[in-house]
């Protein structure tokens, strides 16, 4: 992982931070770094320490479940302008799925330990981040429920 210049600007331009005050953005930027993953490279495994969360600048990341005795199942893909990784918010801070770059992917990586520390100190900043994260989590939950319905599966037999 390489720290590069311009992270402030990257955060400002990312939809997740749209409308966020410059002061809060500045604090968050202090925990940010830039990363690049090649196609098929694992970003994190289920059960790993959830010490980061990610903003996708460009590329595609697959969210996968490892099922013993079966091939990994891709449950979701995350694209430009989206975020993934929410296990850093809730104890025990362990990732609940595998994340893999489907193609060359550029991310902004946020150091979760650094963020948690700052959020604890600065509640307004903590609120600002959580109010952006919770809708993402709610949306993912709704999408997962819809997937569970298996709407294209075999319907009740009729005509």
């Amino acid at each position: 992982m390489v720290k590069i210049k311009g992270l402030d600007r990257m955060l400002r331009e990312h939809p997740f931070f749209e409308g966020m005050g410059a002061d809060v953005q500045g604090i968050v930027a202090g925990c940010a770094s830039n990363a690049r993953y090649e196609a098929d490279q694992i970003i994190h495994h289920e059960g790993d320490k959830a010490d980061r969360f990610y903003l996708v600048r460009s590329g595609v990341v697959s969210i996968e479940m490892h099922v013993p005795g079966r091939k990994p199942v891709i449950m979701d893909t995350v694209h430009d302008g989206e975020v993934f990784g929410w296990s850093w918010i809730t104890p025990p801070y362990r990732n609940s799925y595998d994340a893999r770059a489907v193609q060359l992917t550029r991310l902004v990586v946020l150091d979760a330990k650094c963020l948690r520390k700052k959020m604890k100190k600065d509640c307004a900043m903590g609120y600002e981040l959580l109010r952006r994260f919770i809708p993402v989590m709610a949306h993912r939950l709704t999408s997962s429920r819809l997937q569970m319905l298996d709407v294209y599966g075999s319907p009740k037999r009729g005509g």
Binding site: I63, P72, I74, D76, T77, S143, L146
Partner: peptide
């Protein structure tokens, strides 16, 4: 095109189709 679930042999979108609308 998006599918509800896939293996590694699929490099396209995975997820429910309404998610494609915002993109």
């Amino acid at each position: 095109v998006s599918v509800d679930r896939a293996g590694h042999d699929w490099a396209g979108n995975v997820g429910v189709v309404p998610n494609l609308i915002s993109r």
